[in-house]
């Protein structure tokens, strides 16, 4: 554990809880992509199956359980409790275009051909692109609520902080995993455009709207 990893995890946790609390408090999931949330649920499920097979630390296990429950809680709020507020007309990204290629890639580029390893690799590849339906939705509607912008910023920062963590681990532990590093870089690049808008608009008190 290092400071980059800890900040990354806390940023990730903040993002997930922020989204859950926002939907609960406003009784609405307007502007949130249900498709991205479905992809994140698949990501957490396929990655954290190792809760049953390997123990790392209490910290890791608790975080995994929180991520999984928050993710399914968000799906419950979006597709059941506050379903009428779900803006499905603007959530039109075809997620099969992400699910299938990520699955194929996880069979092609993987460390070991075991079920858990392929599922873990799949979760890494799918996570890298899981935000695309959400970003597509923001670009279609041309705007995002401020709280949604904070959610996206925290979620994007998490993987950027993980990149610093991997650099740190490379120098301190001589440890390198190119699968997560390249996927993590792709994931972070996808947020760059949004980061720019967030810094130039939202942090100056303006609403995030596209020209």
């Amino acid at each position: 554990m290092n400071i980059f990893r800890l900040c990354g995890d806390l940023s990730h946790l903040l993002a997930i809880l922020l989204l859950l609390v926002k939907i609960w408090k406003t009784r609405s999931c307007a502007g949130i992509s249900g498709k991205s949330q479905i992809l994140f649920a698949i990501v957490y499920t396929t990655r954290y199956l190792d809760l049953f097979t390997s123990f790392v630390s209490i910290y890791n296990s608790v975080m995994k359980i929180v991520f999984l429950s928050a993710s399914y809680g968000t799906l419950y709020l979006m597709f059941y409790k506050f379903k009428p507020t779900y803006d499905h007309n603007h959530d039109s990204f075809r997620i099969l275009y992400l699910i299938v290629p990520a699955l194929v890639l996880s069979f092609v580029i993987v460390h070991a051909y075991t079920l858990m390893e392929v599922l873990w690799t799949y979760s890494i590849y799918l996570e890298a692109v899981a935000i695309m339906p959400q970003l597509f939705m923001v670009s279609r509607t041309g705007e995002a609520e401020t709280i949604t912008s904070h959610y996206l910023f925290a979620l994007g920062s998490y993987r950027a902080l993980y990149i610093l963590n991997w650099i740190y681990r490379y120098y301190t532990e001589d440890f390198l995993d190119l699968i997560v590093i390249i996927a993590g870089i792709v994931q972070t690049i996808l947020y760059c455009d949004f980061f720019y808008l967030y810094i130039t608009k939202v942090l100056k008190g303006k609403r995030l709207s596209l020209p």
């Binding site: 890791n60 460390h111 070991a112 390893e117 993980y162 440890f175 995993d177 997560v180």
Partner: peptide, 10 residues
Amino acid sequence: SYSSKIHDEL
């Protein structure tokens, strides 16, 4: 191995 070590992350 490489793959077993990265699994200590989230």
